[in-house]
């Protein structure tokens, strides 16, 4: 159910959606759809998005990850944040055409988690929580970008292979260029993921947040699998200097695992420091903290 306080997020989604339409439209008809407008719409969306997170944070007095919905929104914010910085640094042509629709789709999905029936059970003031969450979120954001880059790579390689020289062909950068950026984003995200996981492990060991059988938690297992797949990717690229479509496909697989680790585990019944609560006990838990 969508309640009034979530209107800003819906505005954000609308802005992202229109920005997507514009950035895709720009590829098809550059005279009708303005590239700059797409960027501005995205930036406007990002500001509303940021404002909404600040509002959520001020309202609860905590960083906005108190439930799955908030975590999801925070993660999406990280994606945009990393993208805007990367775009500033590297000038990524046409990446927004791939990334913003993905962000829009994920935002719509995030809306379905509204209702807050999965609430965080650990102290939000804990240093360990921050140390665990923030690097992982930024790492995931980098992986989301590498995912959209790999989609871009596969699109361009398909066009080259099948000799389809449509309007998209001329606007996409070279395969090598995309491959390099993909590599840069992964090698940026991986150390952060590692750091987050290490802090998480410390946290578990020192404060016993997931109970005795913590290593059987789905999220822990899948987190490790995610780490392994990106470690394998890095190994292939660094040691075996692998390039091309295989790397792109593996990056996509890696991101699917990221998404599954982040959201899918809740469907499998993993709580991972969240608890299913009814509306009444909602405030009680927050009060206890």
């Amino acid at each position: 159910m969508i309640t009034l306080p979530h209107i800003p997020f819906i505005v954000t989604i609308v802005l992202y959606f229109v920005s997507s339409v514009w950035s895709i439209g720009y590829i098809i008809n550059p005279t009708l759809f303005n590239k700059k407008l797409a960027k501005w719409l995205m930036m406007m969306g990002f500001f509303v998005h940021s404002g909404f997170l600040i509002f959520l944070g001020l309202e609860s007095g905590n960083i906005p990850i108190t439930n799955v919905y908030e975590s999801f929104i925070s993660l999406l914010w990280c994606v945009l944040f990393v993208y805007i910085n990367l775009d500033y640094l590297y000038k990524l042509p046409s990446l927004d055409t791939f990334l913003i629709p993905i962000v829009t789709a994920l935002s719509i999905w995030a809306l379905t988690f509204d209702g807050g029936n999965l609430l965080i059970t650990v102290s939000l003031q804990s240093f360990w929580l921050i140390a665990h969450i923030i690097p992982i979120f930024i790492g995931y954001a980098a992986f989301t970008i590498s995912f959209s880059l790999s989609i871009m790579y596969l699109t361009q390689q398909r066009q080259l292979k099948h000799k389809l020289f449509g309007p998209l062909f001329s606007k996409l950068p070279s395969l090598e260029g995309i491959d390099n950026l993909m590599w840069k984003t992964i090698s940026f995200g991986f150390p952060l993921l590692t750091l987050g996981l290490v802090f998480g492990t410390f946290w578990i060991r020192t404060q016993n947040v997931l109970g005795e059988m913590w290593y059987l938690d789905y999220k822990v297992i899948l987190g490790l699998a995610t780490w392994l797949i990106y470690a394998a990717l890095l190994h292939m690229r660094l040691i075996a200097s692998f390039h091309g479509t295989k790397i792109a496909c593996l990056t996509i697989a890696g991101f699917c695992l990221v998404l599954f680790t982040f959201i899918g585990t809740f469907f499998m019944g993993s709580k991972h420091a969240f608890q299913k609560v009814s509306e009444q006990s909602h405030t009680e838990i927050l009060n206890v903290q």
Partner: peptide
């Protein structure tokens, strides 16, 4: 032009 779409 095609080569430029493959190599940076």
């Amino acid at each position: 032009e095609f080569a430029e779409k493959i190599f940076q």
